[in-house]
Design a protein around this nucleic acid. Structure first.
Lengths: 210, 210, 210, 210
DNA sequence: TATGAATGAGATTTCATTCAT
DNA sequence: TATGAATGAAATCTCATTCAT
């Protein structure tokens, strides 16, 4: 199910695979950030990872596998960190906490996110599908939470707007990843989270307070 | 000043240059949308434009020039269409009309915008700088208008928030370009414009209506 | 139907393709004779053909295509030269002439034959099938002629033996190609042809003369 | 003198060397039959032999050594089985028995023979020389026997034809190895041996019976 | 002895760019 | 101006061989 398991390695030692792939991913992200996927050569990836081109190819089959691994890492981390969100209580407070967790996650992995969004078009169809699926999943998490809040009477929001609001949250997260440097001149992460949360709740809660 | 004039051509006839470059740009956008800049070869670009590889190189110097031209087209159009915005009156109505013009522009050129945003990283430094500069200019247009509205007492918005609000407008435009297909399941362009405008004014005008 | 037409070229000028492929084939045969297909690099093939590696790849898609071309050349020549055989009269004289044509053909193209037989295993399945098919066709030509002679009462040979006799002719041709250098110490081409023809007819005609 | 002794091993235990090399040869022949020498990797050879790549290299120095070993096996077996031929009596009966032994040997080791003949070109010069030498030796065995028969008045054959006749025997053996599958549709091994023997004696003995 | 991870030279192939026609 | 064949630097990927464990 995970992309990682579709990337075949000719090395047998599972722990070593884990370790080397970690090196590959870190090196690749560093490189891709700087030059993008296409401008980075496999030799550079290997060097950045700290070993030879031959060794690189013991742990991947093709250059695209490196993108798989990068994407996979991100989603594993996302999965891990957001797993708590689904269990949040259906209150304004729960929603606020969920948004907070999500934006901090983006901030921590912003390099990886940028790389993934910029390069995912280079993935072969099935892998691209997987990435989009994962992203729909992320949006879905927030939709579920918003709907729960609506059902609990915490938010007045039409079913129609739920999708858009969830989208909005996700997009504003991307915005932070992509435009961090500009935004940081205006806002701290905390400030940005607060602003976005207010913005969202203003739009959604206000009508409820009528 | 325009990028176009930095792209040297060995052909003398200005009208012909204009015509051929139009063909190049249209072909390239069609191609880049589908396969991205790096996956598209100059041969394919030439074919898509309707002439030979030799002819292509009569009108550009390097493959990157094609990206320049694409970006340049967008900004020429943006310039043209948004030129009226700067002269809009400093009222809520003026701001609303400006946003409307901007979002419709994005909708018309969404393919070009997507290509530009996805591939601009592939531009060499100075060209990237130019693109970013242009974009800052776009944001600047809205900042100016917002500030004028604030000065005119139409909006209660702190100087600090002006930048972010302008950013917000621009980003939501990008969102429409990038996620058109999903968003169109929920909103018409008109609906989206209305929603985003409300969203923005809710955040900004409301305090003013206190 | 011909393999040649399955080898795609990005060059449009048909005559040029013909000319360049002729160069490729000649260079390749020279090289393969000496080092075999696998030991020869595409760079060497290009150099031997008299142009750059890039140009080589304008006329073929893959290294295997070179083998296709070599095999195709041989069979075109075989086709051309043996086309007369099918029309030979069903007499001992006709059979003798056919064998003569065939063995002289082998002698002329012996380098190419050796290369083809040694390397055909390296062809992908469908191309290998094509080569085998062509070879069965060659055997078939002699079978047809032998059967015609038998029907005409010129030879006393059972249907069962026809296949083997045809095989025998073909194999002895291969023997001349593969072991020319040793055999030439004992026989001239003329002598060899005479010997093999006698050998065959001794086995087949003798009973008829009973 | 044997090739085997030129293949250096870093393992000391002679029996183990013997055993491992047996595994290597069997695995290699199986593999080479299917994919040829060049298409087979040392990793695959090791796997097919039943141990690791590291272990493989304890028993050989280079990949070509594997071919040496295969060729060597064949010639050891040939040596063993044909040792009796040299002592055969100089009669038609003795010659017939020798041919019988030889063709059955080919049938038993036909995979190995095919591999050897197909791949021997890949051997380095000195090893190729060795293989050719061995083969000349095989032809020589039959030459000796044929000459003895001629001297004993059993065959009327010119000195000149002896070489060719011996060649003929050897080649027809190769033919059985290479074209077994087609030939088996027409002949059993016994039938083929009988046919070839008759063919040969028809050509050689008949004149004597004039 | 046995293992298999690491290595890097070298192979195939692509493609932006040039230039003669 | 338009064409497209030619070029070769550079990219991806393979695999025989080594060596530490």
């Amino acid at each position: 199910m995970e992309l990682k398991h579709q990337v075949k390695s000719s090395v047998k030692d599972g722990d070593l695979i884990e370790k080397r792939r970690e090196q590959i991913i870190q090196g690749a992200v560093r490189l891709f950030k700087q030059k993008g996927f296409h401008r980075s050569t496999t030799r550079e990836i290997a060097k950045e990872a700290g070993f030879s081109i031959g060794t690189l190819y013991e742990y991947i089959r093709t250059k695209e596998d490196v993108l798989y691994l990068v994407c996979d890492t991100i989603y594993n981390e996302v999965q891990l960190r957001l797993s708590g969100i689904a269990d949040e209580e259906a209150t304004i407070g729960g929603l606020t906490r969920a948004i907070d967790v999500y934006y901090r996650l983006i901030d921590d992995l912003s390099d990886e996110f940028v790389v993934m969004y910029q390069e995912s078009k280079s993935l072969p169809k099935n892998a691209l599908e997987y990435v989009l699926e994962k992203e729909r999943g992320m949006t879905g998490l927030f939709e579920t939470l918003l709907r729960a809040c609506a059902d609990a009477g915490e938010l007045r929001i039409t079913e129609n707007s739920i999708g858009l609001a969830a989208h909005h949250i996700v997009i504003q997260g991307q915005m932070w990843a992509f435009r961090r440097w500009e935004l940081k001149q205006m806002y701290t992460l905390d400030g940005y989270i607060e602003f976005q949360t207010d913005q969202l709740l203003n739009g959604l809660v206000k009508p409820a307070s009528n």
